[in-house]
Design a protein around this nucleic acid. Sequence first.
DNA 1: TGACGCAACTTGTTCATACAAGTTCTCCGC
DNA 2: GCGGAGAACTTGTATGAACAAGTTGCGTCA
Lengths: 246, 246
Amino acid sequence: MTARHEEIADELRRAIDREEYTVGSRLPSEAELAAHYGVSRGTVRQAVAALTAEGLIGSRQGARRVVLASRRSQSFAELRSFAQWARAMGREATGSVVAQGYQPARAEDAVRLHLPEGTPVLHVLRVRGLDGEPVLLERTVYADWISPAVEAIEPDCASVTQRLYDETGLVFAYGEHVIDAVAAGAQDAELLDIRRTSPLLRVRRVTTTREGRPVEWSDDRYRSDAVSFSVHNSIDNNALARKTAE
Amino acid sequence: MTARHEEIADELRRAIDREEYTVGSRLPSEAELAAHYGVSRGTVRQAVAALTAEGLIGSRQGARRVVLASRRSQSFAELRSFAQWARAMGREATGSVVAQGYQPARAEDAVRLHLPEGTPVLHVLRVRGLDGEPVLLERTVYADWISPAVEAIEPDCASVTQRLYDETGLVFAYGEHVIDAVAAGAQDAELLDIRRTSPLLRVRRVTTTREGRPVEWSDDRYRSDAVSFSVHNSIDNNALARKTAE
DNA sequence: TGACGCAACTTGTTCATACAAGTTCTCCGC
DNA sequence: GCGGAGAACTTGTATGAACAAGTTGCGTCA
């Protein structure tokens, strides 16, 4: 039972995807869409606002909306879960824990997870692969209150996110990602089966629950020949920010 | 003459920034905010929707909104213009053209800029620095209709974006950014004053006008010890997407 | 004391209306 | 044919109302 405006947004997304509206062409006016779907203009506006935020269409006062891109971006579900992402692409995700153990939270951990310094937190080092080939090294720190559930998961579980949801009902709802590049160290090189000093795409992220409570933070290193990230944005909607090294 | 809902969004952003609302705390209800600012609930909703999209606050039906982060993300103006970004941080941007010239559009250029293959397009190689130190190498291709204006700009102009706006009224309104990591090549290393094979953060981007017309596309390589990117997102709002190498 | 259920609260959805502000196109006059 | 004025169209902003759906906390009952 999704909301009407989401149904309409989905229909428009699909129409753009199958090039019913081609890149560069104009969308029908709000009034036309409202009449077509039998809803008020406000509901149509909610639908097109979603597509605008995704960068699929552009909007200017007075002019009809323009289609900017046709490739639909992934759902957040696919972003937050390696396994779901792989499945959506028709590839098989693998994963295995290389090392795991409790350590008292350092200042860094305490800040990111909103915990008192010294709280025992679970560190996990995981290698993840697509169709058998390793592409990602995850160094993750879990908050104390979720650590027991994580510890109980078998080392080669393909989808930790899914498992945590099934076991505890935990949903990852918000994330902040900081992206830069690093050279592969000795451990990185060995586990990812690449040469030392190869460039890696590093994503440091913090994930939180719907209530805003931090669950985990992670240093993810991707083989740059296998994975990249993309961001759509606009003059009103800027999820991406550039930062200098501190 | 900004809209009321934007004023309110700004006030809330500032309040969060100066920790009047701390991370993890709850925002007043829509009804309270509406009464406080003397506007309708709809207007308040527009304001908080903006903050939600930025990832500053989290929202769940039935519960009060929660502050997720305090650091405000940059404006799109700062993202699209290296010089404006530098100025906002109190640093000085420099820039110099290393090479420049017309070449017939390759298939790649034609697709990204929506031009016929073979159209003469302007290629520019620029080094950009912060406080004198080189941090970014830009290899940009400009669409034919803007190339003359770009060509007329002096080689050491600090803000090309600003200059193009002043001269032609051109506004960069939408962008798509694809981010990965690459090893510095010989030319990269020399111009950025780093060793060969050092990891670089590569951003390939296409920028378009408000009408949705592509203006330029660029391969930007950042010194990874100097610059990183960050993305806020949420279960409803996912600007960031992970992609495999094709 | 602990568990349950309900009431109060809060955000989500939708509608209808009105006006402001920007764009586009037509048509008229030169 | 060209340029400009203006009408028609389109999106942006704002209000007010009503109901749906989810959360929280209080209070009661066992």
